[in-house]
Design a protein around this nucleic acid. Structure first.
Lengths: 346, 346
DNA sequence: TTTGCTAATGAACACGTTTTCATTTTGTGA
DNA sequence: TCACAAAATGAAAACGTGTTCATTAGCAAA
């Protein structure tokens, strides 16, 4: 009866548009489907009426019959993380341009996956799912998602992952971390660093494991000592404390290689503001990701970059390819990393 | 034929569950609706079969008949902004616990609103819409959303906004900025600051306008000079440059009051790393928001805090209230601000 | 005009659920 | 045992759309 109720009742349907435009309801459907065969003048008339009635096809109804929801699910543990928020932002923009909307699902910070969440998510029938949480195994996800085509974001070709996925088809985005890490180690070595500490990310993170492994491998190849490994969780506070411990309880280090930029920030602040050490004079620091904050003057961080735009382009390419042709062979896209040199090494 | 195709076809429907459990399809529907009348033993049997068949009710089909999509639309200009990503994260968590999923839509960074986006968004039939972009006028949004119940996030009781919304019903979340700003000005005055600069946010932002107005009002009340106003856009880089200009081209200042924390970071870095000035000795800096980065040692920012948890609680309360009783009178929730004192004033 | 072909058209069906509504079963008190 | 309310049940309708399929209109070539 009131204003709000009237507005609620006002949602126009294809039938109303059809009646108003003196056409069949099927014609209205065709008017909104560009490659359907319909007389141009008729289509124009319908669209005009539709605009006047403020009509939009109902996605739920459309989804029901086409099997396409135009939703892309994203599973993230922490939207606040600069790297992830960048990724969400870029992906949402790109997918929106292609007619897809982003459906956001949060998992606990400790990466524990509530099975009910997957069940719940599946109810929305996402056309594709992007999992940022790297420890959701393909088999687990695939068992819950039937029609949806999952896409995984993983880092480099980790064997345990490949093993778990055997027999299951899925698309992959690989990040070859070797390049960037090699450049970083070369730079550190060039500036005389000898005792390097690795400030880890989350223990369950495959990216973290792969970075640690690659760093060790690279140091060995160059005849350098194995790194001291500090436990971390990708956060500033933990990195700060770990760095303090390294120098107060442990034996210190020439250089700190952090698993991500935010961790590097924590290390730098601990060195400068609590330990009274100079970066890069006393200790050199290298990060990973190259988030926007890395170029802020207080940090001016030397870091291994993963090109975000290139990464998003590859991801969108995979998703669209899979949607267009769901039964084609699984694809793998590969990205490289490279070092961005700023002021925290020398 | 292949593994993937088999899996795709495997999506179970209520009919299959009904057949398997020797009940009618209606019973299956009721089994998933807790307050429907159904024999407990029968419900158990159905749920057991459903679990075995990996069945979940299809949200699209359910949405079609109930008129509830269980989707909450969020319109954001920039997911990467620390304040907004915090808000998205907290809201998504809270809504997920209540059975709603977050549908993310991005608008251009300059706040320009593509009308097609609203049309597109409406197609998904969100149960509610949260607009972070403060310059989307209620009338514009309401004309596009019929069934959805929009909720606005606005800052303080801005008159131009109230005017535009006259005649339209909508819920509001007001942030009273006066408290925090008054505390900040008192602190600045106590430390001898006299020439204060206001480093603005986006010109179109209502929050920015309100903060500027409140600052001017407060300064006048305490008999202090009107502030120099610097144009900004909430970003680090612009704040950095504006601060440089203030001291190189302009007359400098005793203190800088930034419209947000990230802007304050840019100001601090310009002062310390390019102008060779000390914060807080030469220039005092106050921010707005209290994002997690504000306590990072490199900045250790004194800032006006908006309590995020309290804010999200209020927002979720509004949304759920509106969903439960769509025709009730529009509500207004009010939040306060307070100063968090750290190291950038004295 | 005739033939053939393509474009345009609309009736009927399908998608997977919830909700009415009429019917049957169960439970309770006299 | 009976009467009556309450709970349980399933057939049918509804939600708003895309797609199939058989039919008609339009048009160029023979």
């Amino acid at each position: 009866m009131n204003d709000r109720a009237d507005k609620k009742a006002a949602r126009a349907t294809a039938d109303q548009v059809a009646r108003e435009a003196n056409v069949s309801r099927v014609a209205v459907s065709r008017a909104f489907n560009p490659n359907a065969s319909l007389k141009p003048e008729k289509r124009d008339r319908i669209l005009k009426v539709a605009r006047a009635l403020n009509y939009t096809p109902d996605m739920a109804a459309r989804s029901l019959v086409t099997g396409r929801s135009h939703l892309v699910g994203m599973i993230v543990p922490d939207v606040c993380s600069p790297w992830e928020s960048q990724e969400i932002d870029a992906l949402t923009t790109a997918l929106q341009a292609e007619g897809f909307a982003t459906l956001l699902f949060k998992v606990k910070a400790d990466f524990s996956m509530d099975p009910r969440l997957l069940t719940y998510m599946r109810g929305f029938n996402p056309d594709s799912v992007i999992a940022f949480t790297e420890n959701i195994l393909p088999d687990v996800l695939c068992s819950f998602l039937d029609r949806a085509v999952p896409i995984y974001v993983i880092y480099d070709d980790v064997e345990q992952f490949a093993g778990a996925a055997s027999g299951t088809l899925y698309d992959r985005l690989l990040v070859r971390q070797k390049n960037g890490i090699e450049q970083a180690v070369a730079l550190l070595q060039g500036y005389g660093a000898r005792r390097i500490a690795y400030l880890g990310g989350k223990a369950q993170s495959l990216a973290n494991a792969e970075r640690e492994r690659t760093l060790k491998e690279t140091l060995a190849e160059r005849g350098m000592d194995a790194p001291v490994v500090l436990a971390g969780d990708y956060t500033y506070d933990t990195a700060y404390q770990a760095t303090l411990d390294l120098f107060r309880v442990g034996d210190g280090a020439d250089a700190i290689f952090a698993a991500n930029d935010v961790g590097a920030f924590g290390a730098i602040d601990a060195l400068r503001h609590e330990l009274g050490l100079s970066v890069p004079d006393d200790v050199k620091v290298v990060g990973f990701d190259d988030i926007p904050q890395a170029h802020w003057k207080s940090y001016n961080l030397t870091t291994v970059r993963i090109d975000l735009e290139e990464r998003v382009r590859a991801l969108v390419r995979l998703i669209l390819m899979r949607l267009r042709d769901p039964d084609s062979e699984p694809l793998t896209e590969t990205l490289n990393t490279r070092l961005i040199v700023r002021g925290t090494v020398g």
